[in-house]
Amino acid sequence: MSDERLFGLQRHERLMDELRRHGAVRVKELAALLGVSELTIRRDITALAAQNLLTKVHGGATLPTDLAPASAQRRHRAAPRFTIGMVVPSLDYYWPPIVGGARSAAAAQGVAIQLRGSTYDWAEDRRQISRLIEAQQVQGLLLAPNLEGDGVGEMVQWIDNLPVPVILVERQPPRWTPTKHQLEFVRSDHALGVELAVRHLHDQGHRSLGLLLSKGSPTSAHLARGWDLVCAELGIPAGLVIRESVTMDQPGHRDTIAQLLAQCRAAGTTALVIHSDPDAMSVAQYCAEQGIAIPDDLAIVAYDDEIAQLVEPALTAVRPPKSMVGRIAVEQMVARLTEGRRRPNQRVLVNPELVIRDSSMPLPFALPPA
């Protein structure tokens, strides 16, 4: 394979990564990011649009959408092999890249996605799932239901009895449940994600760390387990774990952050892992107001990497593989629908990555002016 061909494939992969992450891309920004001409990016977009991996728009591209012109749909789309229903608890924070990855994989696989937005509520989950089933248009379901609380067994049983195959997305049922089928899932390995954060901070010399968990998040249990394991392996205290939301839209968030930082001072804590980005941003902003220097006085690693780069200083963050989770879920469902019950059940964990920025690294020494 020629270098030119290889570089083209690499550009296409990077372009699609940016598209899945943001939902839309602009030619000018991509050209600057990839260090090529705008003409080259336009050609790349045209080539990917011909494969129905994206939709060309003026000045850029978006993920494939049913809003594309009918003539373009007729040129690029045959009748879908399958229609897959997808129910997610949010259509704004965290979930758009997962949906984008699912749509991209669906376009490549020749299948359709019917998307429904729900909430973190069993009743609404059931209502949206039931609507998809009653319409008799879907052959499989990708679901992210609420699996917290005392009624989780009942919800898992209800899902297990649905008349079409189900794959859970960013969700995991209890390790053992008395169901006809052990439910398949695809999710980020959040325990590994927090381990990446802790080991990075440990490498920077921090020995007293704290973990701030977003209250009520399904991710919290995985983060807490990973935290206990890595702290035990490194021989550092694991006691400072706080389960509280401190986003700016929470009443009394400043008082909560003040109490958190008082606990850090009392424990000699020099670094925090904070889930999620909005909470980390709130802590960073409060620190700036109080003259607490990041990372000199307190290092911070955020978890989610949705908006972590927008803070000053930019926050080091663990980035769950959101678009890849959506992509693998669709590919797994297509394999299930194609091969049937002879295909062994799969439970897939996808590794996050650590994006290192200024909030966890020593600031460079500034030379005095000449």
Rank of each mutant, 00 (worst) to 15 (best):
R343W: 05
L337C: 03
P362F: 08
P178C: 08
P165T: 00
S130W: 03
E18F: 11
E184A: 01
A31C: 04
Q10A: 11
S71G: 10
D249S: 06
L201W: 08
P173E: 06
P295D: 11
S37K: 03
R341M: 14
V325C: 09
Q285L: 15
M361W: 13
Q259D: 12
I294A: 07
H222K: 13
T256I: 14
Q250Y: 03
G193D: 05
S130E: 13
T46V: 13
D228A: 14
A135E: 09
A329D: 00
P362R: 10
R265H: 09
I133P: 07
T269L: 03
L354M: 12
S188G: 06
G210T: 03
V283G: 12
P163C: 12
L33Q: 14
Y94A: 10
R171P: 02
H275L: 13
A221V: 09
V169T: 01
T256P: 00
M248I: 11
R75D: 06
G210W: 03
H253L: 06
A191L: 03
D44K: 08
S104C: 14
V36C: 13
A267V: 00
Q346M: 06
L48V: 06
C264G: 02
E18N: 12
A238P: 10
T55S: 14
V99S: 05
G100K: 05
S245C: 03
A106N: 05
I129H: 02
I98G: 08
Q128Y: 01
I98H: 03
T247D: 05
W158T: 08
Y93D: 09
H22T: 13
G205R: 07
Q73T: 07
W158S: 00
L9Q: 15
P320L: 07
S188M: 02
V27F: 00
N345K: 08
R26Y: 00
H181A: 01
V156P: 07
M16T: 08
H200P: 12
D150Q: 14
V88P: 02
Q73V: 08
R347G: 00
V273M: 08
R127N: 05
G193L: 03
D255A: 12
R75P: 04
A70L: 12
L349M: 04
F365C: 09
L6W: 07
L141F: 02
G210Q: 06
D125L: 07
C287E: 13
